[in-house]
């Protein structure tokens, strides 16, 4: 199951995100940006988790908790599609 970033949302390399339908801007840290790019590429949550565990010094539980919180914020900011 993949959470989808809204199509009209552009991610810049600096971690700056502009939401064209609300006018709000967001910033993400480098890890957040990497995750968003993976989401944008259509990867599922499981794939993203596997990718992160492979590349970063973090255990599965810790990442899952942080990832969950990150997704909550993406939903709060309405950056993802409502229907998955």
């Amino acid at each position: 199951m993949a959470m989808r970033i809204k199509k009209n949302i552009a991610l810049s390399e600096s971690g700056f995100i502009f939401h064209p339908s609300t006018g709000d801007s967001y910033s993400v840290n480098p890890i957040g940006l990497e995750i968003l790019n993976l989401m944008k590429a259509g990867q599922s949550s499981e794939e993203i988790k596997a990718h992160m565990l492979e590349h970063y010094r973090v255990d599965g539980d810790s990442f899952e908790k942080d990832f969950y919180d990150f997704q909550v914020m993406l939903r709060t900011y309405k950056l993802v599609e409502d229907h998955e």
Binding site: S14, G15, F16, F18, S25, S27
Partner: peptide, 11 residues
Amino acid sequence: NISEFEQISTT
């Protein structure tokens, strides 16, 4: 342009 706003906000 938003690119200018982005630049001052991020850098």
